[in-house]
Nucleic acid binder design. Structure first.
Ligand code: ZN
Length: 208
DNA sequence: CGCGTTTGACCCGCGC
DNA sequence: GCGCGGGTCAAACGCG
């Protein structure tokens, strides 16, 4: 099926009336996270690791205040490069956070791995607790493959960005340890912006 | 018609 | 060489 799960998600939350597209803006933060950095090499990524951690948490907390759909359900978010080592995890209860804007990132761990063969693109994986298989992140994806992975009853889906000239791929599978989690792996950097996602932020832009 | 999904075939690297 | 696992292609199909 397509990426139109808006009804499902919007049913779970109260979208702010000012926000024309809650589901998309929610994931925009994800994209801001690595798009703004635009690191082409893992070394860059690693170099900025500390700052990233900040930006990361920040992105997920403050701008999300209105639309913490997924993150509220989150028990953990994992960023990882080529699945191994160098992990810095932070267990934090954001209880002191503005309860109105409570975005609960209880167990937010970040994993970074230096890869030997850092193929041109970057690779980032989000581990998200959700029952939904397909999550609209603001980009248009075209599914191009599905595979059954070994030792995992759940299939793995392959998507590619529909925008011409953009080679970003993403791959979605359920965590075999805990099938209530979905691991979404992005590979590459978009050569464009999302059409809709910035509307919300533009409306926030003020000149006071 | 245009575009997205489905799904088996195909490809490729690797270990035996 | 062969089988296997992971990744991709593409023809057929579905839908607005
Ligand atoms: Zn793209």
């Amino acid at each position: 099926m397509s990426t139109s799960l808006a009804p499902t998600i919007t049913g779970m939350i109260q979208p702010p009336s000012s926000n024309p597209n809650p589901t998309i803006t929610n994931f925009l933060t994800n994209h801001n996270y690595y798009d703004d950095l635009g690191f082409d090499q893992l070394s860059d990524y690693l170099a900025f690791e500390d700052q990233l951690g900040d930006a990361y948490t920040c992105n997920f907390t403050s701008p999300l205040s209105n639309i913490p759909v997924i993150l509220q359900e989150n028990k953990g978010v994992i960023l990882q490069e080529n699945n191994t080592s160098t992990e810095s995890s932070l267990n934090s209860n954001h209880d002191d956070m503005d309860s109105n804007h409570a975005v609960q990132i209880n167990n937010c761990s970040k994993r970074v791995k230096r890869s030997e063969k850092s193929d041109n693109g970057s690779r980032i994986a989000f581990r998200i607790k959700t029952e939904l298989e397909i999550l609209d992140d603001g980009y248009k994806w075209r599914k191009y493959g599905k595979k059954m992975v070994k030792n995992n009853p759940n299939p793995r889906n392959y998507y590619k960005c529909s925008t011409v000239g953009c080679q970003v791929k993403k791959r979605v599978e359920r965590d075999l340890k805990d099938s209530s989690y979905v691991i979404t792996t992005y590979e590459g950097i978009h050569s464009h912006e999302t059409p809709h996602a910035f509307v919300y932020y533009n409306t926030q832009m003020q000149f006071d």
